[in-house]
Design a binder for these strands. Structure first.
Lengths: 190, 190
DNA sequence: TCACTCCATTGACATTTGTCAAAAAAGCGT
DNA sequence: ACGCTTTTTTGACAAATGTCAATGGAGTGA
């Protein structure tokens, strides 16, 4: 499974064989079965995680026990809890496999080291961060200005593949509405 | 006004006198009166902007003509439209002074150059980006899981000074609710 | 294939939030 | 200080969304 990560890296920058080997040496491949946790609330997250196959979701559980999905990560996406990673504090998120999945894990101490030694990796990570910020910004805009129906339409447009792949109640949770509301919206949309 | 920017920079990293001079050479100070625009929808944003005094807001206008505030930037914060900056596409945001304000502007071509020549500046920017991402993430969580009242409470807790400084209808807009709703919430909160 | 869990849909109803209109209060420029 | 604009509050009502409960269907593991 490391080869998929390698392929991804090479698609982003011209890493040398030596650099790739360094990265591989720091990597651990972890397989997760559907519903298995990569991180549970209360644990400290100390990795950088790249998804090579499958799909994971990051969610919180509120006071009433309801789940709220903060994001999904499918193959070729990164996941994790950067808040916990950088603060060293226990995470308030759960990261769970939505499908059987495979992730490449690199402990952050080693990852920092790699970023220093491999400028291209550092740039790649900063670029991801930049894109993540823009995506988050767009999602905030949708959240504060769109109706439930508009949110769903925008979601379909931006991530058409997700709608096919994910159970609808998860999409609803991601969009900040109930599964019943989403179901009703879909009725008169389609 | 450049001295305030310099002070900020020095509080973040040990820039040399020479580096600060390079940065100053690329900087333009711009004063804005209340309600004056720093950026209007349709323009391409090509700067990096640091607020040395005052307060600005970034907002969109929806199909019905309603404004939605994406964020505020007060003294010692950065602002701008990174989406437009990196894509070169016209911005869909408006950035406007909420109070009389002063900003330091650096054109992005020069800023990129500075980032390359001054590693500490590059790290600073990446760190800002990282923090911005975390803040955005938290705001998304609030948006998808909190009621209007909970959103306001969280806002008060996170940015107590903003509540005193900003008109309430702007806070409401930032939180994704109407000014009437916020007014009613405040009635039984206080 | 069977039993079982998970998922999507629907209806009735409750609650939250928005809309519109008006008035009072506060802030601002001259 | 005055007049004007902006902001906040309030009420009555409308619309959107959530809650609860029930049902049927789809998916899944043994």
């Amino acid at each position: 499974m490391f080869d998929l990560f390698e392929k991804y890296l090479l698609s982003k920058a011209a890493f040398t064989a030596n650099e790739l080997q360094q990265i591989e040496a720091a990597s651990v491949v972890r397989k997760l079965r559907k519903r298995q946790f990569l991180l549970q609330e209360g644990e400290v997250w100390v990795y950088n995680a790249f998804v090579t196959s499958g799909c994971l979701r990051t969610y919180t559980i509120d006071a009433k026990g309801a789940e709220h999905i903060l994001n999904f990560a499918v193959e070729n996406w990164w996941t994790g809890d950067r808040q916990s990673l950088t603060s060293g504090q226990p995470s308030s998120y759960n990261i769970e496999a939505v499908e059987d999945s495979t992730v490449v894990l690199i402990r952050d101490e080693q990852f920092k080291q790699l970023r220093q030694e491999i400028p291209a990796l550092n740039e790649l990570v900063n670029d991801i961060l930049h894109r993540s910020f823009l995506a988050a910004q767009n999602r905030i805009q949708a959240a504060i200005s769109y109706s439930a129906e508009e949110k769903y339409r925008a979601f379909l447009q931006q991530y058409p593949a997700f709608a096919l792949r994910l159970p609808q109640h998860m999409v609803a949770s991601y969009l900040g509405m109930t599964t019943e509301t989403l179901s009703r919206i879909r009725r008169h949309i389609v």
